[in-house]
């Protein structure tokens, strides 16, 4: 599904990622953990195509094809989805109208007609229920005045609507209380299938109790310094990152 090869990327000529290798197959859940400033969000942004992150070396392939030259919207059309740590507020554009625009633009890029209004409504209703979202919520301006939990639920709602091949969840657990965390994780788990993959980026192990990863990778100073199974997350929770820092001499 996703193959990252010796990826070097940075901002303003400062290298943040210093040679990342990562392979994610369809049906898998991977987690990237690491201390603040290790490059986690940079990796998420580089995959989604944020312009200011310059890739100086290496490649990112989605289903065997390099996506480096693609605009963010083209990557989205090809099945990449990023759940933002800090979703943007857009006054005057309702959640419903926003998601309609996003879906129909994606369909247009694929040469498809707009989704029929009835089908769209049914899908919106279905996915809103999955995320336990109130109907009123859908007519509110996108992210304007949303609580932390509402914002993240709205992100996963969009993911449910867009049905990406690869979903990247960037610090989706930050700002969530335990109930919201459960709803969000439950949503992600229900969307998981053998045909898609999830990359969870998190500082803490907490979210991984709900979205159980097949693989855990530890990112430090722009490199993956250790990979393992879900037990690695528990070990990090228990011991913190310092012991690993010493071990790898980072």
């Amino acid at each position: 599904m996703l193959s990252i090869k010796d990826l070097h990327a940075g901002i303003d000529e400062k290298d943040i990622l210093k040679g990342i290798n990562l392979d994610i197959k369809a049906g898998e859940v991977h987690a990237i953990m690491g201390p603040n400033g290790s490059g986690k969000s940079t990796l998420a942004s580089a995959i989604a195509g944020k312009e200011e992150y310059e890739v100086s070396k290496g490649d990112i392939e989605l289903e065997g094809e390099s996506i480096l030259e693609m605009d963010p919207e083209e990557r989205a059309h090809n099945g990449v989805f990023l759940s933002f740590q800090y979703p943007v507020e857009i006054p005057g554009v309702s959640v419903t109208n926003f998601i309609k625009t996003a879906i129909n633009q994606t369909r247009k890029a694929k040469g498809l007609e707009d989704m029929p209004a009835g089908e769209m409504l049914k899908k919106i209703r279905e996915k809103a229920e999955l995320l336990e979202m109130d109907r009123k919520f859908l007519s509110r301006s996108l992210n304007v005045g949303f609580s932390g939990g509402e914002k993240k639920r709205n992100e996963i709602f969009q993911m449910a609507m867009l049905e990406p091949k690869l979903a990247i969840l960037d610090e989706t657990d930050s700002g969530l209380d335990i109930d919201a965390l459960r709803i969000v994780a439950n949503g992600v788990n229900k969307l998981k299938s053998k045909d898609n993959a999830v990359l969870v980026i998190t500082h803490y192990q907490r979210l991984l109790e709900y979205i159980v990863p097949d693989y855990v990778h530890v990112l430090m100073d722009g490199k993956i310094v250790r990979s393992g199974g879900k037990e690695l997350a528990l070990e990090l929770e228990e011991k913190g990152y310092d012991w690993l820092k010493e071990e790898v001499g980072a």
């Binding site: 963010p72 919207e73 989805f81 857009i90 554009v93 625009t101 996003a102």
Partner: peptide
């Protein structure tokens, strides 16, 4: 706001439409 534009683009909304949406907002 370029980061707002990136948010829209990451949802599959083209740059031109994204800019229009932000101006409208």
């Amino acid at each position: 706001d370029e980061s707002a534009l990136f948010y829209l683009q990451s949802r599959g909304i083209g740059e031109k439409e994204g800019r229009a949406l932000l101006m409208y907002a």
